[in-house]
Write a protein that binds this DNA or RNA. Structure first.
Lengths: 151, 151
DNA sequence: CTGGTTGCAAACCCTTTGCAATCAT
DNA sequence: ATGATTGCAAAGGGTTTGCAACCAG
């Protein structure tokens, strides 16, 4: 897998070890869809490998972020989520406030306008975050309150 | 002051009391510039009124958010900040990652594109958050690392 | 009076870390 | 061997809350 190579290269260049846990966690992470919180992901890992600890998952996700296999995203929930980064285009998020559905999007026009704005204020661009919150089609229809399915 | 009226109306309609603390806290909040964290603001309040407790400040800022005197903003620092809302136009933020300088902006074109995107995905708009991170002009010049001046 | 509010301390929740045991190389 | 890593338990750091004493209306 290409992702494994990324991890191997990063490990080599930093003098890190490729432990079993790291390889397993990468394998599980690649299977995950969407944007998992650490705890959600830890539960997935634990089901397959009950011996892997929370801190290892925590530290490994940080490691993945460092080598750009993963990206931390923050939907304002008071906790971090992780999404795949390697091989994925830059994108922003559209989030349903009722059911938690997230849609990824990339709008070149918005991107361009953002660059322009940074330039206008003489800022050197580093990053940006755009999140649109709303109600998805489904949630608009059933007016009843449904809980966010995410943990 | 108009803001006080907003608070009074909100209190009346919800059966809440206009305590001294609330009036004082509003007064201090209106004097604050920029985007304060709860702790920063609590320190300001404490200097003038040492008897006002942290939870009162915390709860009062929440109260201000409810009646739209204030808005909670999250710059991904792992804590909330509050800014004035009443009488202020909707805006987003440009943030210097080195010194913490924040610039408020509003770009009608970006706003329009966002609406369009929501519509395209059949989402009913609720809110959005756009933050551009970069280095401000000053920080680009002095390459030295300076600490974020904010608490 | 009486329900709303305050201040304190403690609880929460997520994140982060010290450390002894264990692993990869 | 030897430095990196793990898992645990505990510490952090910000946010939130239970509660008895205290106010506003």
């Amino acid at each position: 897998v290409k992702e494994l190579t990324v991890l191997e290269d990063h490990a080599k260049s930093k003098g890190l070890n490729l432990t079993n846990q790291r390889k397993k966690i990468l394998e599980y992470f690649l299977k995950v869809e969407d944007h998992v919180s650490i705890e959600e992901f830890y539960n997935i890992v634990k089901k397959k490998d009950p011996d892997i600890g929370y801190s290892t998952v925590y530290r490994t996700l940080k490691l993945f972020s460092e080598c750009e296999l993963a990206r931390e995203v923050d939907f304002g929930e008071g906790r971090v989520r992780y999404e795949h980064l390697f091989g994925h285009e830059h994108h922003d998020h559209l989030i349903c406030e009722k059911c938690g559905l997230t849609v990824e999007f990339m709008d070149p026009d918005i991107e361009k306008l953002q660059e322009k704005l940074l330039k206008k204020h003489k800022f050197k661009p580093i990053d940006h975050k755009l999140e649109l919150f709303g109600l998805c089609e489904k949630c608009q229809k059933n007016g009843k309150i449904k809980d966010d399915k995410r943990k």
